[in-house]
């Protein structure tokens, strides 16, 4: 019995909790990608770097707050800075739209042209981030490190295995839940939100109904700024901030959005968790859990790791290809053909 409990705790500690946090981060990222796809109708390659920019803005504000002695108790100061970071990123995205994307929208350019344009934007944003904050590792998580640490948990329960819940994990889950709830409330209950869905559904009819496309697009960029910055800051708090790691998140984020069905917000969330848990499950060394469940003589000798963690891209990729081959519109029906 205690063996079984130990196994559950080990599983939660190494797989379920980190997987959920990573899934929430991917889901927020994928929501941004999917919204842009639904409204502006292109795959935004600059999204990873938008996340990096938002995180950087938040870090700079955090440093500013810290330097004047403001902190947030046991929570990271970055949470106070987050709204300002979002605002800065929102301004950047609105400016980018004005200066760059709008021209192609007016021309009714093909989606692939917009994708290439977004690659240019990606270069510029990536350069901007490197220029401002550099390429080094930035750790900006302050406040308490653990809500509950492994030792306390062991003492409390008397089990051999500890369950550590880091503050950042908890914050990730709570913030992501709030963000998603707000987003769905906005999309389903407000006039502007509904007009966004209408625009995404049928652009021409939305125009005939008097919905102003430029307003819809502007609101979309602002929401994307909020989602991208939040996702980026949560990821950065959880791991650390590095200019180019965000670019690498592009693949799992796109995989999540496509697996869920591009253009479908609910799908993006589901896709985020599918990708995250697959990555964690397949790259986790199961020995730790199995030793509690198997009889002594059958205990595994190796780590029982299906794939080394360096292949986590391969996992997103395999899921992506499987979905593309068998269900190209994604698990939830997306817009794409």
């Amino acid at each position: 019995m205690t063996d079984f409990l130990n196994a559950i705790v080990a599983l939660s500690n190494f797989v379920l909790v980190p997987g959920a946090a990573y899934g929430a981060q991917l889901a927020l990222g994928a929501l941004g990608v999917t919204l842009i796809y639904g409204i502006l109708r292109f795959s935004n390659f600059a999204h990873g770097d938008t996340m990096a920019f938002g995180t950087m803005a938040t870090i700079l504000v955090t440093w500013g707050l810290q330097s004047i002695g403001i902190s947030f108790g046991f929570l990271p100061t970055a949470l106070i800075a987050l709204p300002i970071g979002i605002a800065i990123t929102g301004l950047l995205l609105l400016g980018t739209d004005r200066a760059i994307y709008r021209f192609y929208r007016k021309q009714k350019a093909a989606p692939v042209v917009l994708v290439i344009v977004s690659i240019g934007v990606m270069f510029v944003m990536n350069g901007l981030v490197r220029f401002i904050i550099g390429v080094g590792d930035v750790n900006f998580a302050d406040g308490a490190r653990f809500v509950i640490n492994a030792r306390e948990f062991k003492e409390m329960t008397g089990l051999d295995e500890g369950l550590a819940i880091r503050t950042t994990t908890l914050i990730t889950l709570v913030t992501a839940a709030i963000a998603v709830a707000l987003l769905f409330w906005f999309l389903n209950k407000t006039r502007t939100g509904k007009s966004m869905r209408a625009f995404s559904d049928n652009e021409d009819l939305a125009l005939l109904s008097g919905i102003n496309p430029e307003r819809v697009v502007a609101v979309t960029w602002l929401i994307v700024a909020a989602l991208a910055t939040t996702a980026g800051v949560l990821y950065g708090l959880d791991k650390s901030f590095k200019a180019f790691t965000y670019f690498q998140l592009l693949l799992p984020i796109f995989a999540a959005a496509i697996v869920g069905g591009l253009g479908n917000p609910l799908g993006a969330i589901a896709g985020g968790f599918v990708i995250a848990f697959s990555e964690v499950l397949i790259t986790y060394a199961w020995k730790k859990v199995l030793v509690y469940l198997m009889p002594e003589n059958l205990e595994p000798s190796g780590l029982v790791q299906l794939l080394s963690t360096d292949y986590k891209f391969a996992v997103s990729f395999a899921i992506l290809i499987t979905v593309l081959l068998f269900k190209p519109t994604g698990l939830f029906k997306g817009q794409s053909v």
């Binding site: 292109f42 795959s43 390659f45 989606p111 692939v112 994708v115 690498q248 592009l250 693949l251 796109f254 995989a255 496509i258 292949y311 891209f313 391969a314 997103s316 990729f317 992506l320 290809i321 593309l324 190209p328 794409s336 053909v337």
Partner: peptide, 17 residues
């Protein structure tokens, strides 16, 4: 044979792999 953005994401993935 799929949409152009899908080819893009797929090739992005194969390169990382």
């Amino acid at each position: 044979g799929l949409r152009s953005d899908y080819l893009a994401i797929a090739t992005l993935g194969i390169a990382e792999i």
